[in-house]
Each structure stands twice: as C-alpha cells, then as structure tokens.
C-alpha cells in the first residue's frame, strides 16, 4: 500500500499542495488532471525523484520519504519512453538486471521472456531511434518490469501514440496489471484512458486533489464544476434547489424545474450525462421523473453516434445511435420530448 501524507512541494511553476492519499495494493490508480496540475510531480515524488518540502510517503508502512529512487524498487515509464539511445532494445531492458549483477545467461533468459511477452523479440538488437512509438513504449515497459517492481508508475504513457497503438497498449496495460500482481499508478489528462483502465481516479487541480473515487463515482457524480468539466459532463446547469415530494430535490433553473434523487438545498450545479437522456417523438408514459417538451436545435454527426442539442427551456446535449437517429426521422427544428430519471441528475 502506498500512503501519502500531507505532501507538499513547490518548485518553479510546479506545485503539490498538501496532498493526502492512499493507494491500495494491486490497484490501478489514475491521476487525472490538466497540464500544470502537478500530477507528474506527484508521480515523481512517489518515485523518489524529488524530496518533498513537507509531508511523508509510505510504502508498505515504511517511510520512504527520503529514500532515493534506486532504493524504492518502483518501475517508471515516461510519455516519451526515455529509452537509453546508445543501448539496444536488449541492453535497455537488461539495464536493471545488469545493475543487480545477475549472471549473463540468467539476464538473457529473463530479457527474452519479457521481449516475448511484449512481442518485441525481433527488435532485440535495434537502437531505440529505429523503433515506432508503440515499440518504444513496449520496450520501456519491459525495461521497467524486469526488476519486478511492486509499483509501476506511468507518466502519460499513451499520449504520444496514435489511436490504434493506444488501444493496443490499453489492452497490454490490463494484461500486465493482472499478470504481474502489481500496483499501477498512471498519470493522464485523458478521461477516456482513465475510464478504460482505472479502478480509482484522483482528479488533480493546481496541486490539490479535487476528488478521489471509483471511475463510476467520478463519472456519474462529479463533486464540483471543475471535475464535471474535466470528465466531459456536457450538461452543466445552475439552479436553486429546494425540497420536493417523494424525498426528491427540485432544482429550478429559472426556465425549467428538474427533479433529482440527490439531496441539496440552495444554489447548485446539476449535471446530466448525455447518454442518460432518451428522446421520443411523442409524450409517452415512462417512470422517468423528468419529461420536457422542446425542439432540436443542432445536430452533430460524429460517425457512429449522433449528438443533438435540444432546447427545452434549457439547452441539453444528448447522444443517439445512428440507427435510432434515422428511425426517429429527426431534423433541426422538430418538436420532441426528452426523458431522464431523477437518479441521472447529479447535484453539486
């Protein structure tokens, strides 16, 4: 288990401000935040590349705050791979074992095993600059994993890669996580990556943690506007909340009244995930507490899905599959009804 206690560090334009956090064994944990939020510095603090100004870092209940990186036994993978350019793929991967003065034959066996695992055996004698991004990242992963670290830290490991390679590596990361019995902490600014990989996510903003939770918690129930914006909640509306019937909360946005199952009073923001809103041509009877009549204002064709803006007094965004879009025979200006459940309305 990794435990971070009141950690602070201020260096040039980077800042970590009194962060406390616990990461469980074998957890896939993601630090998510915009650039400049301090997420890389937090990762490097865990790796021991900096000394904090104050605070402590524990690994397995041992205080490692002032332990240098070479004594921590963590693997580290950077966005730009940081392969040693003067060493071959084999030598790069073997580096950690060479330092441990293992026998040449044993090193060869272990390196080849990992190269097989990542499908890079035939690159053994190549220099890093001759490799593709995906190949370099696989080499970097193998290099980090060869020392069998208990913790693997990855700083934006997918950001420099094309979409297809990224998808492949996401599968790779999942596989590693299972196979190596390892705690992974990954830094990213991409929420989709976090969604696909993380057990839990910490959202960072200006060196502080805005919210920690499971992927679902953060996605469905962003705690503040920053998190909501960051995880791509597109329907964020201000309103005044008051107590309604059946234990629900009614939020008056000034134009419409929306019911939520969450309890809050006073000035609030509400978010509704676009995929939680259904659309119909007629006013049908459903269990959904929120039904509004409006018209279609904009249509964006995103290929496999269609995104619509509807005006029901407030403008809401929702998504449809291409099939239901054509079945409903929608066009701009058409009158429609939208429905969503009270549980789909997140308040903060």
């Amino acid at each position: 288990m990794i435990k971070i206690e009141n950690l602070s560090k201020d260096w040039k334009k980077f800042k970590i401000d009194n962060i406390s956090l616990e990461i469980n064994d074998n957890e896939y944990f993601v630090f998510l935040g915009p650039s400049g939020s301090g997420k890389t510095m937090l990762l490097e603090l865990i790796a021991g590349m900096w000394s904090p100004d104050s605070g402590k870092v524990y690994m397995n209940n041992t205080n490692v705050t002032y332990l240098p990186p070479e004594k921590r036994g963590v693997g580290f993978v950077y966005q730009n791979y940081m392969l040693f350019p003067h060493k071959t793929v084999f030598e790069n991967i073997a580096f950690g074992l060479t330092l441990r003065k293992k026998e040449k034959q044993q090193i060869k066996i272990e390196v080849e095993e990992l190269m097989n695992l990542f499908g890079i055996s035939e690159l053994s004698d190549r220099l890093p600059r001759t490799l593709s991004g995906g190949e370099q990242q696989r080499t970097a992963l193998a290099r980090a994993l060869i020392i069998h670290p208990k913790v693997l830290l990855m700083d934006e490991p997918l950001s420099a890669l094309d979409r297809k390679t990224r998808e492949e590596l996401i599968q790779e990361f999942r596989r590693i996580h299972k196979k190596f019995d390892i705690t992974i902490i990954q830094v990213t600014h991409n929420f989709d990556e976090a969604l696909q990989l993380a057990d839990r996510i910490a959202i960072l903003k200006k060196g502080k943690i805005s919210q920690v939770g499971t992927t679902d918690e953060i996605f469905r129930h962003p705690k503040d506007k920053f998190v909501a914006d960051f995880v791509g909640s597109e329907n964020i509306i201000n309103g005044i909340a008051k107590e309604g019937i059946d234990g629900l909360t009614i939020v008056d946005t000034g134009n419409i009244k929306i019911e939520s199952s969450q309890k809050k009073i006073g000035d609030v923001h509400l978010t509704i995930r676009p995929e939680d809103i259904t659309l119909s041509n007629e006013n049908i009877v459903t269990s959904a507490r929120n039904v509004f009549k409006g018209y279609i204002k904009e249509i964006y064709d995103l290929g496999t899905i269609i995104k619509l803006t509807v005006d029901v007094g407030e403008q809401l965004i929702l998504v449809l599959t291409r099939k239901s879009f054509s079945d409903l025979e929608l066009n701009i200006g058409k009158e429609i009804y939208i429905y969503f459940k009270a549980t789909a309305v997140n308040l903060f």
């Binding site: 490097e44 240098p68 070479e70 040693f84 441990r100």
Partner: peptide, 25 residues
C-alpha cells in the same frame, strides 16, 4: 534529465547513472 531519472528507478545510483548514461551520451 528524465532519462537519468529512469536509470535511477532501475537501481542505478547517481554516479553509476552518470557514467553509464550521461557520460556516454
């Protein structure tokens, strides 16, 4: 410098990192 940092995480001390990574490069 991140290349040197990676070498550190792999178990190389500062001097070792210097002569096996920084100096050759």
């Amino acid at each position: 410098p991140r290349m040197e940092k990676v070498a550190r995480t792999l178990g190389a001390g500062t001097l070792r990192t210097f002569y096996s990574i920084s100096l050759p490069l």
